[in-house]
């Protein structure tokens, strides 16, 4: 396999990030008419989050770190339960699945990833909107679905919604930080050190509709620490339907 070519491609992406560090933006959308009142006691099925934590090398490659990834997974899980309990909803962990059931679960995790990146690319990214997703055409359009097959996800029978979470953190290495400083002081170039990408989405387990999506390419909170993970989950679930922020926002005229 041509691994080296892949690394070079990754590096070129990193170079692009250096020059376009301004595009990182946060976006949230809720399906029109969807409301989840606080303390409604809904059951939310948490699909095993995709978590990956590591360092960013001087050249911008991702250097995976197993210890940090483990810590982050543990901290994020704990923070999620805490946060959801406070909102009055129950978080259920998706059960261990075998055979065909496991295939279904994996397929929907991948489908969610594809749909979420389509939302980010073709709706959240203003310059690239599909004609049908333009706010100019229809006010507040947020119409995406995974299809009714979501009912077959293992654990879907006993839950109302499924929560998908993706989290990738690359902390700038010492070399990367030195490069950043040198580039700023010398030729005055902006080099981005570190990458903190996350998105979270809520899917209706009866209809398959995507109810809420939050994507953020510059997240705060150090997921390797308990406090940091709580802050991160707070940002991931920002404007989560039924949360205090969303309720207050809705009250505004």
């Amino acid at each position: 396999m041509s691994g080296i070519t892949r690394w070079i491609a990754l590096w070129l992406c990193a170079i692009v990030l250096i020059t376009n560090s301004g595009i990182a933006q946060e976006r949230t959308a809720v399906k029109q008419g969807f409301e989840l009142s606080a303390n409604s006691g809904k059951k939310i099925l948490l699909i095993r989050p995709k978590v990956s934590v590591g360092e960013q090398s001087t050249g911008g490659l991702f250097e995976p770190n197993a210890d940090w990834t483990d810590k982050a997974r543990k901290n994020l899980d704990a923070a999620l339960f805490k946060k959801q309990g406070a909102l009055g909803n129950t978080v259920l962990v998706s059960p261990e699945a075998y055979g065909d059931q496991a295939l279904v679960s994996e397929e929907y995790t991948n489908l969610f990833g594809a749909v979420a990146s389509a939302v980010v690319n073709y709706q959240f990214f203003v310059g690239n909107r599909l004609p049908t997703k333009k706010r100019d055409n229809k006010a507040g359009v947020f119409d995406w679905s995974l299809g009714e097959g979501v009912r077959n996800i293992p654990g879907a029978q006993g839950a109302d919604y499924a929560l998908f979470i993706y989290n990738k953190d690359a902390y700038g290495s010492t070399g990367r930080k030195l490069l950043q400083i040198a580039a700023a002081l010398g030729p005055g170039l902006a080099v981005k050190s570190g990458e903190h990408l996350g998105y979270a989405g809520l899917v209706d387990l009866k209809t398959g509709e995507l109810l809420w999506l939050n994507a953020d390419a510059a997240m705060g909170g150090d997921v390797r620490e308990i406090d940091g993970a709580e802050k991160r989950v707070g940002q991931l679930l920002e404007e989560f339907p039924g949360s205090v922020e969303a309720v207050e926002k809705a009250k505004q005229p």
């Binding site: 691994g3 080296i4 690394w7 070079i8 590096w11 990193a14 090398s57 001087t58 050249g59 911008g60 490659l61 250097e63 070399g175 490069l179 040198a182 580039a183 010398g186 030729p187 170039l189």
Partner: peptide, 23 residues
């Protein structure tokens, strides 16, 4: 392979910086 790609791209990053400093 990962290590060689990393040292190669590290080197290139510094070289790019030096080249743009020199101009």
């Amino acid at each position: 392979q990962f290590k060689s790609a990393r040292s190669g791209t590290d080197l290139l990053s510094w070289a790019a910086l030096l080249a743009s400093m020199s101009g």
